[in-house]
């Protein structure tokens, strides 16, 4: 059965938005992972004695660092990542809403064209 051009067009758009949604979901997952990793590092860092030696990576090098400074740095990192997570979540909600609208309109158009599943 031939699919009408307007429905074909809507389908293409739907698939494009679907891909965008997937990319945003992956971004969110990535940020969530980074938050978990940083929080875990902070947890381990807190176990180190006050005068214990801590290091931070710079490419392949490890640079001796101050525990308080490194802790502050990681706390700031978590904060920045959490902000980023909120932004990505907002983007995800928006795109999911759009996807839902497109799906409804696509189903409506298919119904009108007699293409619904029986």
């Amino acid at each position: 059965m031939e699919i009408p051009q307007n429905i074909q067009h809507q389908l293409t758009q739907f698939q494009q938005v679907q891909q965008q949604a997937q990319a945003i979901s992956m971004q969110k997952q990535n940020v969530e992972l980074q938050i978990k990793e940083t929080e875990k590092a902070l947890e381990e860092l807190n176990k180190v004695e006050e005068n214990g030696e801590v290091y931070k990576t710079a490419g392949n090098l490890l640079i001796k660092s101050d525990k308080t400074e490194l802790t502050q740095e990681l706390e700031d990192k978590v904060e920045t990542l959490q902000l980023r997570e909120k932004t990505v979540k907002r983007q995800e909600d928006r795109i999911m809403g759009r996807l839902q609208e497109m799906q409804t309109s696509l189903q409506e158009a298919m119904k009108n064209a007699g293409l619904t599943q029986g």
Binding site: Q34, E37, T38, K40, A41, L42, E44, L45, V48, G52, E53, V54, Y55, K56, T57, L62, L70, L74, K77
Partner: peptide, 12 residues
């Protein structure tokens, strides 16, 4: 030894 914790942090 120096052990890495992830997130670019490590300690002796």
């Amino acid at each position: 030894v120096i052990v890495g914790f992830g997130a670019g942090a490590a300690a002796k």
